[in-house]
């Protein structure tokens, strides 16, 4: 009997896992069937499909950003529909600040792919990220939730501010590994690769690729991390 958590059929969680798996295959150049099929194709017709696109945020654009594959207009429209149907929270709450960073990364990713997202309904208001947590445990937990911005050019301001917090991020990564929280570990590996890779990140990434292979979301994060590592 397996004790592995199984998402409820038809849930956003299940759709997010399936989308992550599809995107991971696209990143590794083994997309479904014919290689030209979009990893986002038909996701608006699947239960929880648009919500899954919103959950993965800028990461749904990773196959285009990291492999040079062009983003089609209908794919950009899917992202726009997901943002519209699942708007970012407003106000001055920590949640709204988090979405501010996520949507800054999404807007930057779209811009790099030639899509101007200004005026899109549902996007968070652009704003500078709040102050970083002083302690490494909280900082790492925050960065896990902001991992869609973990790319060398999607949020230069945040990246710049993290450059002298590398050890704190690495401590968060090691803690996640020891807690067997491979998804958080993969996301923090992405941050470290964005800042400055070392022997620890390369060994950790291989471990995540092997030990996290059964979880599509870990697989996807690890595939992004691998391309970030290879593209440096």
């Amino acid at each position: 009997m397996s004790l592995t958590h199984q998402p409820t059929p038809g849930s956003v969680e299940e759709a997010t896992g399936a989308l992550a798996g599809s995107l991971a295959r696209a990143l590794r150049g083994t997309s479904d069937g014919v290689g030209t099929r979009s990893p986002l194709a038909s996701w608006d017709r699947r239960a929880g499909g648009l919500a899954a696109i919103r959950v993965l945020g800028a990461d749904v654009l990773a196959p285009f950003l990291l492999t040079g594959k062009p983003l089609r207009q209908e794919e950009a429209w899917l992202v726009r529909a997901a943002v519209r149907d699942h708007p970012a929270p407003r106000g001055h709450t920590p949640e709204a600040a988090l979405w501010g960073v996520r949507d800054t990364a999404l807007t930057a990713a779209l811009a790099r792919l030639g899509v101007d997202a200004s005026g899109w309904e549902g996007l968070a208001e652009p704003r500078a990220p709040g102050p970083l947590a002083d302690d490494w445990v909280t900082l790492a937990a925050d960065l896990v939730r902001l991992s869609t911005a973990a790319h060398p050019s999607l949020h230069p301001e945040l990246r710049e501010r993290l450059l002298d917090r590398r050890l704190d991020v690495a401590r968060g990564l090691v803690r996640a590994m020891l807690r067997r929280d491979l998804l958080s570990a993969a996301r923090l590996t992405r941050w470290l690769l964005t800042l400055a890779p070392d022997d620890l990140t390369s060994a950790t990434l291989v471990h995540l690729e092997i030990a996290g292979h059964h979880d599509p979301r870990v697989r996807f994060e690890a595939a992004i991390a691998r391309l970030l590592s290879d593209n440096r």
Partner: peptide, 13 residues
């Protein structure tokens, strides 16, 4: 100095 804080945190938890 690098890693003791992590181990302390994990075994505290």
């Amino acid at each position: 100095h690098r890693w003791l804080p992590v181990w302390v945190e994990v075994f505290r938890e």
